[in-house]
């Protein structure tokens, strides 16, 4: 089977000199959920815009559902569903009208369109509000409609740019279940960008971390976590002003490696976290640095992210 998405060496600069993508390559296999993680401005949305034919890359090539995005954008558009980071609903139209128009643009019509629209409204729990103008809907309802719109024509490849940002935990859970269902039951390939590591961990079969317009790490969540040896140790200093002294003190603790500072947060790795913590605390205490919290954990995606994007993940 052909890959759902291939991107090779994509480069894009915006007027004004911002280098949004700097040689980004990735592959999404047929039927898989692929997660794209990265800090603000990393280039996630730019990647999605290029793959969905909205923007043109300055360099590089890409295919979606087997079609070249530059040479056959029309074929790509017919094969994809897109949920952009910013909603694209018609605020003055009802939910039902929004869905119906989207279907018509893809050539769905008549009875098939009506039943598809009813179906999606039902599935995303929007039937009650369907006749009302979208402008008056809550943010969560609008986001669900965004996703429903992307599905109206049963796309082969689905792009979700931060689909759950701003949703309450319950709705997010329902959205996760729905995304999982699309991947398993409808074997849709899904490229998902997210700021939530738990979301990527739970949904994505493979994921990539983007930073500065290129992929800095890629693999299954288990592979990426496996790259990190030992436990993660996180300390939170009581006062940010203590940082210089804390640096010096922590530097003497040989059991800690890969130490990084981010404001009051100190992160490090240790082969045996339980033994390293007392040593670290003792060193800090003798330097007169107060510690607010200490945690020791098995490696998480958060740590993977920290290591590759060079900073702590703050959603």
């Amino acid at each position: 089977m052909t890959d759902a998405v291939t991107a090779h060496n994509l480069g894009k600069s915006y007027p004004g000199g911002v280098r949004a993508l700097d040689g980004l390559s990735l592959t999404v296999r047929a039927g898989e959920v692929f997660g794209l993680l990265g800090p603000n401005g990393a280039g996630k949305s730019t990647t999605v815009k290029i793959l969905t034919t909205l923007a043109r890359p300055d360099s590089g090539t890409a295919t979606v559902a087997g079609h070249d995005v530059l040479r056959h954008p029309d074929r790509v558009r017919r094969a994809i569903g897109v949920v952009a980071q910013r909603s694209g609903l018609d605020p003055m139209a009802s939910g039902r009208d929004n869905l119906a128009l989207q279907g018509r643009l893809f050539g769905v019509r008549g009875r098939a369109l009506r039943s598809r629209v009813d179906d999606l409204l039902e599935r995303f729990d929007l039937t009650g509000a369907a006749g009302r103008v979208v402008r008056g809907w809550s943010g969560g309802m609008q986001r669900r409609l965004d996703v429903a719109m992307a599905l109206v024509h049963r796309p082969e490849v689905l792009f979700l740019d931060e689909p759950t940002t701003g949703l309450d935990p319950e709705v997010r859970g329902a959205m996760w279940a729905e995304i999982g269902r699309l991947a398993t039951e409808e074997s849709m390939a899904i490229l998902l960008t997210t700021h939530y590591l738990d979301e990527a961990d739970r949904l994505a079969a493979r994921l990539a971390i983007v930073d500065g317009g290129r992929i800095v790490a890629e693999g299954t969540p288990a592979e990426l976590k496996g790259e990190l040896r030992g436990d993660a140790v996180h300390l939170e200093l009581a006062k940010a002003a203590d940082e210089p002294r804390a640096r010096q003190a922590i530097g003497t603790v040989t059991r800690l490696r890969e130490v990084s500072f981010d404001g009051r947060l100190v992160s490090a790795r240790a082969d045996d976290g339980a033994a390293a913590v007392p040593a670290a605390l003792a060193a800090l205490e003798s330097a007169g640095v107060g510690v607010a919290t200490v945690t020791v954990a098995r490696p998480s995606l958060d740590d993977v992210y920290l290591r590759h994007a060079g900073r702590r993940f703050a959603a």
């Binding site: 897109v82 910013r86 018609d90 989207q102």
Partner: peptide, 13 residues
């Protein structure tokens, strides 16, 4: 500004 343009441009319209 509403984002509707970008949505339309990723459809076959």
């Amino acid at each position: 500004e509403r984002g509707t343009m970008n949505r339309l441009l990723t459809t076959p319209v």
